[in-house]
């Protein structure tokens, strides 16, 4: 069978996909935190440009952003190879979407909590990470997990620039076998990598659900009496 014959070739592609999506998830989180900080800035001179940038990134097709970073940045003297170029563009896009998730999550924590943290002597970063963030997590996580699966799926955009990830490997395999043996195995190869991507995203969702349960614990041991009221904010993440 064709797939088994070229399994090491496809496995290389899968490994590259895993590496690329990890970079995109890490980069996306990095930009999300920065943009979220910018969006919550006191000074309008900082907040408004960040807001405009985030809105533009969310409204321009991801495909255009990926191509734009690849073609336009070299004009500014910044040349990246296809791998880092696609990693950068998808990270920035993920950051723009993640920023709104993080900001809404932090805003969902009642202001009394912030004040309580201050009065207990937990100032600045300490109050943020020990008091606010753990309570924001149940709101942040569900949309954030779906953003992470979107980022994993977006790693296939690397194929457009020629990064050797799973989709590109599949393309090469199909081209070569069509030339060498005649008859295109496209439906078989693309069908199989669809299944691989599905398994990948499914595992991420499962992991995310586990994490969600962990952070939801304090809200579950209620008997309707002692537990904390669970914050609810409905968030909508742009779908790609």
């Amino acid at each position: 069978m064709l797939l088994l014959e070229f399994q090491s070739f496809l496995l290389d592609g899968l490994l590259n996909t895993l590496f690329l999506s990890s970079v995109m998830i890490a980069g996306g989180t990095f930009f999300a935190v920065i943009f979220a900080a910018g969006l919550s800035a006191q000074s309008g001179w900082l907040r408004r440009p960040v807001y405009a940038l985030v809105e533009c990134l969310r409204d321009i097709p991801l495909m255009v952003t990926v191509l734009m970073v690849y073609f336009v940045l070299p004009h500014a003297g910044l040349s990246f190879n296809p791998f880092w170029s696609s990693a950068l563009s998808v990270s920035v896009w993920g950051g723009a979407n993640g920023a709104h998730i993080i900001r809404a999550g932090l805003l969902s924590v009642p202001s009394g909590q912030r004040e309580a943290a201050l009065s207990s002597g937990l100032r600045g970063w300490k109050g943020l990470f020990l008091v606010i963030v753990p309570q924001a997590m149940p709101v942040i996580l569900p949309p954030y997990v779906s953003l992470v699966t979107s980022l994993t799926q977006a790693s296939s955009l690397g194929a457009v620039l020629g990064v050797n990830e799973l989709l590109r490997s599949a393309q090469i395999l199909i081209e070569q076998t069509t030339i060498a043996r005649g008859g295109s195995p496209a439906y078989l190869v693309y069908g199989s990598i669809l299944v691989v991507y599905f398994a990948l995203c499914w595992s991420i969702s499962a992991l995310g659900a586990k994490l969600e349960r962990h952070f939801a614990k304090p809200y579950q041991r209620t008997n309707g009496k002692t537990g904390l009221a669970r914050p609810t904010v409905v968030l909508q993440i742009s779908t790609t």
Binding site: A159, L167, S184, P185, G191, L194, F198, S205
Partner: peptide, 21 residues
């Protein structure tokens, strides 16, 4: 399935894969 797979791969499957079926 649609939500769990990359859109780009779906496009390729439909354009390149379906003709052989």
């Amino acid at each position: 399935f649609i939500r769990g797979t990359p859109y780009l791969v779906q496009i390729f499957f439909i354009f390149y894969g379906l003709p052989s079926l």
